[in-house]
């Protein structure tokens, strides 16, 4: 995957740009572009089809938002029909649709972010700035699965030694309480051992450096510059005040050169991700075909 070889700062700048513009503008076309971009990026990184449960949940959320808004908000000029003596307006439905689009886009983009910026990349970002915090995060990430296994082991062994004795609720609670306190004792001892191990390897004797697995290359710098330029262009367009969309009282949109500029630049920004992925894939197909 192309994103795996990029320095995490590039990914961070990309995501921040896309999501900040998405969240702070209310133009529905922008949101649509963001949504399509998320889907394209998911396709290009070869993400497997989402589980049925997830699809149902998300669609349910979308439908619910579109239905709820007109039920509560009756602003808008175009009345479609009456429900409970109140008008259901087109504008309210469209507003609901806009909000649903926003929520879906944000969910998808954050999902992509969590997939691409894993713990290692996060540590690389932190490590340069706050090496001690980075180490703390790393230690915590080690402890979590370790303690989870210990908790499981203590519970299952306890069960076999009469810890949860009878079926009564107070017994079960006291049993769980004991198991939990045993886990805490265990983890405190482990912490002591870990501390000794750190001291034995010289922790605290010098100012710490942080070993970066990802090196910052020229390509990364170019990518960041490109993204920032697009950001600048979009910001200029937005600052001009000519890009707006209102829902109430009537659907209205300003069209003009600035709007087109902002939309095109944002589309380019969003497409940077999927295009990079597809370019990688084509390149590799080409290289491999020559073997």
């Amino acid at each position: 995957m192309a994103y795996e070889r990029r320095h995490p700062s590039v990914l961070l700048v990309y995501y921040l740009s896309v999501t900040l513009f998405l969240m702070f503008t209310s133009h529905p076309l922008l949101r649509l572009i963001a949504l399509c971009g998320a889907v394209l990026l998911m396709l290009s990184t070869g993400e497997r089809a989402p589980k049925l449960r997830t699809v149902l949940f998300l669609s349910g959320m979308v439908v619910l938002t579109i239905i709820i808004n007109p039920l509560f908000s009756h602003r808008g000029a175009t009345e479609l029909f009456f429900f409970n003596n109140r008008p259901i307006t087109l504008e309210a439905i469209m507003y609901g649709a806009g909000v649903a689009c926003l929520m879906l886009s944000v969910i998808l983009w954050f999902h992509l972010l969590s997939r691409m910026l894993d713990s290692e990349k996060l540590l690389t970002l932190l490590g340069g700035v706050m090496p001690k915090t980075a180490f703390l995060v790393s230690s915590a990430l080690r402890m979590i699965p370790f303690l989870r296994r210990r908790a499981e082991a203590i519970q299952s062994t306890g069960r076999s030694m009469g810890l949860y004795g009878t079926e009564s609720i107070p017994e079960k609670l006291s049993g769980s309480g004991k198991a939990f306190s045993a886990l805490v004792t265990n983890s405190m001892e482990h912490a002591m051992d870990a501390g000794a191990s750190m001291k034995a390897r010289g922790y605290g004797s010098h100012k710490r450096t942080h070993y970066k697995r990802y090196r910052f290359r020229r390509g990364d710098l170019a990518a960041i510059v490109l993204i920032l330029c697009l950001d600048a262009g979009i910001s200029v367009g937005l600052a001009s005040g000519e890009v707006w969309f209102t829902y109430y009282p009537r659907l209205a949109m300003h069209t003009g050169p600035m709007t087109n500029l902002v939309l095109i630049l944002y589309a380019l920004l969003v497409l940077l991700g999927p295009v990079a992925e597809w370019k990688e894939r084509l390149k590799w197909k080409y290289y491999v075909s020559k073997i």
Binding site: S119, E120, F135, S138, S139, L141, R142, F146, H190, D193, A194, S197, M198
Partner: peptide
């Protein structure tokens, strides 16, 4: 286990 302090 008691001597390892990082996650990777």
């Amino acid at each position: 286990d008691s001597q390892i302090v990082t996650d990777v």
